[in-house]
Each structure stands twice: as structure tokens, then as C-alpha cells.
Simulated assay, not measured.
Amino acid sequence: MESKKLNRKTLIFLSLIFILALGLRMRVFTKQMNVMNLSYDPKNYWIMSHQIVDDGIYGYAYDIPSGISNARVMPGYPLFLAAVYKILGDKFLQITAVRLLQVILSSLSVLLGFLFVKKAFKKDSAALLTALFMAIYPTYVLSTVMLLTETLALFTMLLYFCLSLFAFESGKKMINLITGVAFGAHLMIRPALLPLFIFPFIFALISKRSFTTRCSVQDDGKVCQSEHSEESSLSAIRQKNRPLVSMFLFQLIGVVLIMAPWWIRNIVTLGAFILTAEGSGNPFLAGTYPYFKDYMLDVAEEIKGNNDLQMAYGIERLIHGFKTEFWLYIKWYTIGKTAHIFNEPYLSRLL
């Protein structure tokens, strides 16, 4: 089933899928609407957003306000929470409003998923299946009521994917600039995609490099491509690549426009250029507790707020664990962690 425009049947199915997605998310929202006991990362983000508004300090810590500035997490999601808190002025009403906004964004992500697959593969059936899976996927449904980056990151990522297709298809400077802005917005929430920014351009460059072989027949056989024709081909390739270079530059400008305030803030406030965030120590340390037994109970207070100390202590725990409980750690880092996570989804434990 291939078509450029949505036919009536596809539109009906897509509408039903959207209603299903919205209904499932609203069901979770209504069940969790009065639950305000946050823990772990949701609680930390929540406290952080209040500190931003009330004290003007951007800093991430555990269970308490950081009291000092840091760059442990990207600013996109904390600023989103802070904006809601600033508008409403109530910490608990903030939770409800954020959950409701995330229900809407997650439902719209289903439509973006459909649009991306439809645009990329020109298949209504594949696009509808994508939308359906996104509508019912438990993680996407449950994450809407959690104060976590998942929902906003998914929305901005899919928005970037969709805009990228339009940008490469049209080559228009403004669309490429907007695409770069969308990518920058996603990086401000989750920076994991940053190394992949160049890949669409590499793919486009490779696909455009079609050398034209010109052949002439001589007495001793077929001779292909004279020096003149080779120069002509290279000139043609350069001409073809000029729009690609322009597209790359405009997308890069869009990314820089969004990321620059974060870089400047880090230089001015922290005295260092920090490209994304510097909070890798905590998840690394957390992973050194097999089956999360005695989770973080042995972590001293001075370590909790320091990324470098957390990374160092995590390495120390890892080495000690393999020395003293080798098979436990082997099992944990091979099949144990996967089995533990998928036995009960992580988000379910937080609800």
C-alpha cells in the first residue's frame, strides 16, 4: 500500500490508534494523579526544578537541593519542569501538570512515529504498525507519569527525525536550520545522539558519489574515462555536494544556537567548557550493585555529590567485586542485569 497522501482508511486507523494511545496514557494518569511520593531520579529532578526557580541555582543532587551549581545533567528537562513550576507556583500541582503535558506529548509522538515511517518508506501499513506499537508499548505509556526525560526526549527525537527527512528532500536552508534547532533541543534533554549528527550527511554524500564512466573503443580494447572526463566528473561531484555542505552548515548553526547558552553558562559558572553533561559517575557506580542489593548504602556523603569520586568508587567496587565474588559479578554483567530489568520493568518499580 503506497501513497503520498493518507487515504480514508489509513486516516481512520491512525485516528483509532491515536485515541488508543491517549486512552491508555490517560488511564495511567488518572490512577497516578494523586500519587505524589516521588523517589530516585524523579524526586531529584523535582527538587532541582524548585531550586532553579526559588534560588536561581542550577545543580543536580540526590534527595536534597545541591546548594551549588553543577553540570551533572542536561538542562532541557529540568528547565521544562522549572517552567511549569514557575507558571503554577505550586510544587504538587506542578507534578500533575507535567504528567498531563507528558500524556499529550507521548500521544503526539505516536503520530510523529507514523509520519517518519510513512515519509521514509512510503508504506502506510508499516507506518500504522509503528504507531500501534508505540501506542501500546508499556514503557512509553508508563513513562508519561514519571518525572523523567523519556517522554520529552522521545518527542524531540522523533521531531528531529521527521524534520530531517523534509530537510534532505527539500534542501531548503530554513528547514535545515529548524532541523538543527530540533536536534539541539533533543541534545539538551539527552545528548546520546550527538555523535550521530554527521551520519545522515555521510550517507547522503556516499549515495551522491556516482562516477560516470565514459568509454571509448580503441584497437587494443575499451579505454574508460579520459583525463578530461575525470576532471569533468570531479567538477560535477563538487557541484552536487555544495547543497549538502550548505545543509550541514545550517543544521550545525541550529544546533549551536540551542547549545551555546549551555556552553557559555558552564564556562562562566563552572570555569570549564562542558560539551554535554558530566554525570556519568552515578550510573556507573549504580551498576556495581548486583541485583541492587544494599544499593548505595556504603556510599559516603562526600562521594554522593561528586561525579569524579563516584566514578572512582565505582571502579574500586567493580575490581573488588570481581576479586571477591567473581561468579556473582559475571552473572550480573551478562544475563543477570537483563533478567532483573525485564522481569519487572524499571518504571513499574517507581510507580
Rank of each mutant, 00 (worst) to 15 (best):
P261K: 11
R265N: 07
F292T: 13
E227Y: 05
V299A: 12
I258E: 08
Q225M: 13
A260S: 10
A300Y: 05
P200I: 10
E227P: 01
L244A: 05
I253V: 13
S233C: 01
L285R: 06
I264C: 00
P191A: 14
R190F: 06
N241V: 11
V245I: 15
E230T: 09
H186S: 08
I267N: 05
M296C: 09
S232N: 06
R190G: 10
L177N: 00
W262K: 03
I258D: 05
L196I: 07
W263F: 05
T213L: 15
G279M: 00
D219F: 07
V268N: 04
Y289L: 10
N176A: 05
Q251A: 07
L249R: 03
K293N: 14
F197I: 12
F273I: 02
H228A: 11
S207W: 04
I258N: 01
L187F: 08
W263S: 03
L244K: 01
L177C: 03
G271W: 04
V217K: 14
L275I: 06
S232Q: 13
F197G: 02
S207H: 07
V256S: 01
L252M: 10
P243N: 04
A277R: 13
Y291I: 09
L285H: 08
L275W: 06
L285D: 06
K208I: 03
L177S: 00
L177R: 07
T276E: 08
S207N: 12
F284P: 02
W263H: 02
Q239M: 09
L270V: 02
V223I: 14
L205K: 00
R242P: 03
L194F: 15
F197A: 09
G221M: 10
E301P: 06
F199G: 00
N241L: 15
V299G: 12
N266H: 02
G281M: 07
R190I: 11
F211M: 07
A286S: 14
V181Q: 05
I198K: 02
W262V: 01
D219G: 06
I175R: 10
P283T: 08
F199R: 05
V245C: 02
S246I: 08
S207R: 13
L257D: 00
G279C: 02
S210E: 13
K240Q: 14
F248P: 05
K208Y: 02
